[in-house]
Design a binder for these strands. Structure first.
Lengths: 123, 123
DNA sequence: TTTGTATTTAAGTATTTGCTTAAATAAGTA
DNA sequence: TACTTATTTAAGCAAATACTTAAATACAAA
């Protein structure tokens, strides 16, 4: 945070002040949305989320097969998604089924929509 | 990619096959969307994108003031967004104004909408 | 109880990320 | 021309990320 040169001479001080306030009043949203986007911004996790939306629920073993990745790698991605409250777990015997939490569906649905639209466009 | 244990005994082979195909036919979308989400998944860059949407265009110096960060730090974030084709630059004298590229607005708008909705909800 | 299956956890590591400081460009001004 | 301003680039570094392998946990069946 070196105070080198700024602020610039012709800067619109009012604009800068207003921007600072906008950030401040939305700070919670930026943190919250940023976390969800950071999780979805990994290609493996994006695929996992997409598959959970499509199939309703899947277990780590199935995801490992589908994505061609090791089980621990999948499990660690699932933990991140679970820690971020994006997915939840259901136990059935020794199998654990993961599914999307409805609270975040509103945020995620535009992504899925985008993917399905792209698919229609290219086929 | 250790082939440790999977696939599980009661796995639905058809489901796994169908999922693999879904991923394959959408592979371009996952790559593309994943890159945009990875860029937006950083809180600083999310704020920059939000501000560019609100203010139309801003220069690195203004963003540095608004966000309270060094100019090089801002500049490097802007370069990432530019490399990802999310923003574009316009030169005016020695000042460079950055703005959102319209192609990606469709993907980004739900985020801004979310932020503004949250703001309404909490005020 | 032993064995096998499904999953998680832990430790190690190579790569990426996001900043820092210092130097390099580029364009206006004196 | 030299000096300031706006921005980028480069090098260095601490922290985070995403995998690996090996060990631990939990449940079910023989």
């Amino acid at each position: 945070m070196a105070n080198d040169t700024c602020i610039r001479l012709q800067a619109d001080i009012e604009q800068i002040k207003s921007c600072r306030e906008k950030l401040k009043s939305n700070s919670k949203s930026f943190l919250q949305l940023g976390q969800v986007l950071a999780l979805a911004g990994n290609e493996v996790r994006l695929k996992i989320l997409f598959l959970l939306e499509e199939e309703n629920e899947l277990c780590p073993c199935d995801l490992s097969d589908i994505l061609g990745m090791s089980i621990p790698a999948i499990s660690q991605h699932l933990r991140k998604l679970k820690d971020g409250n994006i997915i939840e777990a259901r136990k059935a015997g020794q199998t654990i089924f993961y599914s999307l939490r409805s609270e975040h569906l509103k945020t995620l649905r535009p992504f899925f929509k985008f993917i399905n639209q792209q698919n229609l466009a290219t086929v």
